[in-house]
Design a binder for these strands. Structure first.
Ligand SMILES: [Mn+2]
Ligand SMILES: [Mn+2]
Ligand SMILES: [Zn+2]
Ligand SMILES: [Zn+2]
Lengths: 132, 132
DNA sequence: CGCGCATGTGAGAACCATTGTCAACTGCGA
DNA sequence: TCGCAGTTGACAATGGTTCTCACATGCGCG
């Protein structure tokens, strides 16, 4: 049976104040900075539990680091800025159907999928452009 | 300027004999077993170089481990069996266009994407089914 | 209200894939 | 063949994540 603890509440609260994806380490540091001490192990357990419950969405960076963000419960994917990390939730029913169909055609069952789109957002392109 | 060395040749050769995805560690062990000694660091550098050249395709496991496999040069995605790791290369031009369009609509440029489909293959389902 | 205990916590160690170091080695153009 | 930039590999270091285990505590129950 799952208990409501100060620590779990604090970790969940962080994601209410934060946009985009953040690592367990980042959440831990932020809590520390606020004077809200929560052990690193506990933060890891908390974000994983939240992700299992579907309250957080998770992705892996190129380096294999796990990032989490609060997300809507409905199935969706992410459009992520390579430069600033800004993310946009996107949906594509047609893609969903395509994935299921392709898997079915090859005899695969219990189908799931991961899909992420990467690019450089307009703000980051403007920032990089020569002034003037 | 890139040199042809015994080690790089050996690593590349492994992927000619192997189906599916394999880790650097795995490749290293296999070379060792064949009496073909190649340093672990060298194997890591070799698979990364091959991936950069587009000769190997790479994905990350749930645990963040990098896996590589020889793949065709044309853009495609993977349908992977959760149980045995068997993979099928799949293509979906419509998905490509959708991803580009979605990114464009949100002002993102230099767009790329990752897409993987997971499921249980027919063979694995048969194996799991009660005998008789 | 407490009690009891299953759950949760956290400091620190362990894990383990990956990367860095650097002296020795070698492919290959000149 | 020479010279050296590119390459190697034993080993150390990194760093994110997980494990350990003694201690703390939420909460159902009496
Ligand atoms: Mn989807
Ligand atoms: Mn694609
Ligand atoms: Zn951006
Ligand atoms: Zn299978």
């Amino acid at each position: 049976m799952v208990r409501t603890t100060r620590q779990r509440t604090a970790v969940a609260a962080v994601f209410d104040q934060l946009e985009g994806f953040h690592s367990a380490q980042e959440v831990h540091a932020r809590l520390r900075a606020e004077g809200d001490t929560v052990g690193l192990s506990t933060v890891y357990r908390a974000v994983q539990a939240l992700a299992d419950d579907g309250e957080l969405d998770s992705i892996r960076t190129d380096t294999g680091e796990a990032l989490y963000r609060r997300c809507s419960t409905r199935h969706h994917h992410h459009l992520v800025c390579r430069s600033c990390g800004r993310t946009v939730e996107v949906e594509g029913p047609a893609v969903e159907r395509w994935a299921d169909r392709v898997a079915d055609e090859h005899g695969f069952a219990d189908v799931s999928h991961t899909l992420e789109i990467f690019g450089t957002c307009a703000a980051c392109r403007d920032a990089a452009a020569p002034a003037g």
